[in-house]
C-alpha cells in the first residue's frame, strides 16, 4: 500500500487522510481536525497533533502547499503562536495523483491486539472467576462506545433519502465500529459461557495444558 518509500501504519494512513481532506477542499489545521472528526468519527481517537505532523510531511513531499496570501507571497505556518495568521493548505496536482493512487491500493488489515486476549491466553484456573468479571467490564466499555453511536438516522433511512455521499459514507464508517463492538460483545458472551461450562464440570477446568 502507498508509495515505495512509505512505511505502513497509522502515520501513513493519517498522511493520506489529510491529503484526502485537502483533495476535497482546501483547509487549515484546525479545520482539518474538525473535518476528520466529522467524517471519520471518534473511533479513530484522533490525536490532533498527528494532523500537523502529516501536513509537514505532505508539504515536504510537495503533495500539499500553502495557499498564497492576497499579496502573492506564500505564508508561513505559525501554529504555536496565538493569533498567528492562519495558513490555508491545498493539494498540489502531484498530491491529487498520489491520493488517487492510494485510493486504488489494497488496504491493510490491522492486527487485533487486545489486552484481554493476553489475559485470557495466560490465565490459570484460579483466574477464571475474575476473568468473568473482566468480560463484564469489557462489555460495559463496549456499551459505552456503542452509546456514542446511538443514531436517530440509520443507514437504511439515509439510503432511501437524498443524502450526499459524504454523509452516507461517514455513517458507513460509524457502522464499522458498531459492527466491531457488537461482534466483541458476542465474543465476550461466548467466553463467559465457555468458562462457566468448564466450571460446572465436576472436575473443574484442568490446570494442565
Amino acid at each position: 500500500m502507498g508509495g515505495p518509500d512509505e512505511s505502513t501504519g497509522d502515520a501513513m494512513s493519517m498522511k493520506y487522510a489529510v491529503l484526502g481532506l485537502l483533495a476535497q477542499r482546501r483547509g487549515y489545521g484546525y479545520d482539518l481536525v474538525q473535518r476528520f472528526e466529522e467524517q471519520i468519527g471518534s473511533a479513530w481517537q484522533l490525536n490532533a497533533g498527528a494532523i500537523y505532523v502529516a501536513l509537514d510531511k505532505l508539504e515536504q513531499e510537495g503533495l500539499v502547499r500553502p495557499v498564497p496570501n492576497d499579496d502573492g507571497a506564500p505564508s508561513t505556518r505559525r501554529r504555536t503562536v496565538r493569533g498567528a495568521p492562519r495558513v490555508i493548505y491545498e493539494a498540489t496536482p502531484n498530491g491529487l495523483d498520489r491520493f488517487e493512487e492510494w485510493m486504488s491500493t489494497r488496504s491493510t488489515l490491522a492486527p487485533l491486539r487486545e489486552e484481554l486476549h493476553l489475559k485470557l491466553a495466560l490465565s490459570r484456573p484460579r483466574n477464571l472467576e475474575r476473568l468473568i468479571e473482566v468480560t463484564y467490564e469489557q462489555e460495559q466499555a463496549c456499551l459505552e462506545r456503542l452509546e456514542q453511536s446511538l443514531e436517530p438516522r440509520p443507514l437504511e433511512e439515509l439510503l432511501g433519502g437524498s443524502e450526499s455521499w459524504p454523509a452516507i459514507a461517514s455513517v458507513m464508517v460509524r457502522d464499522a465500529e458498531v459492527a466491531h463492538l457488537q461482534a466483541t460483545v458476542q465474543w465476550l458472551r461466548r467466553v463467559r459461557e465457555g468458562i462457566r461450562t468448564l466450571q460446572e464440570r465436576p472436575e473443574g477446568p484442568s490446570p494442565q495444558r
Binding site: L146, E147, R189, R192
Partner: peptide, 11 residues
C-alpha cells in the same frame, strides 16, 4: 442503536 439508551442483559 435507534434507542435512547442501550443496556445489555446476560445471565
Amino acid at each position: 442503536l435507534r434507542s435512547h439508551r442501550l443496556m445489555s442483559l446476560d445471565h
